[in-house]
């Protein structure tokens, strides 16, 4: 089985995800998109016959670094709470 078409599709999805990661207004969506780029990069490593790298990317690139990003975002959110308590719900729903 040839993996050309599959890897091309994965590449398109990854580029779309990185575009979202750069330009989306909400930071949390950007971080999730970065995690998704890691997820698909890990599948791409499997096509390139590198299971070791794929496992590392799955555990670190899309797991642990997302966790660290969210801890930092949480700290920053609780830091600049003053004056914008009211629109926080809108921020989530938007």
């Amino acid at each position: 089985m040839d993996f050309k078409i599959i890897s091309a599709l994965l590449g398109i999805i990854m580029l779309a995800m990185s575009f979202i990661a750069i330009y989306h207004k909400k930071m949390i969506v950007a971080v999730i998109a970065t995690g998704a780029v890691g997820l698909f990069a890990s599948i791409m490593y499997l096509f390139l016959a590198a299971p070791d790298v794929a496992m590392t990317e799955a555990a670190i690139g899309s797991g642990l670094s997302t966790i660290i990003f969210f801890y930092v975002l949480n700290r920053i959110r609780s830091n600049d709470k003053e004056g914008r308590e009211s629109d926080e719900i809108d921020e989530v729903i938007k």
């Binding site: 040839d2 993996f3 050309k4 890897s7 091309a8 994965l10 590449g11 990854m14 580029l15 990185s18 575009f19 990661a21 750069i22 930071m27 950007a30 780029v37 791409m44 096509f47 390139l48 990003f69 930092v72 975002l73 920053i76």
Partner: peptide, 28 residues
């Protein structure tokens, strides 16, 4: 197949560089 992945890699590198140079937010 390696051409496709290598092209993807280069495009992602350029996207990352673009983000580093034009975005204002530090987290971004």
């Amino acid at each position: 197949m390696e051409y496709i992945t290598i092209t993807t890699g280069f495009l992602i590198i350029l996207a990352g560089l673009w983000a580093i140079m034009t975005r204002k937010n530090i987290i971004r």
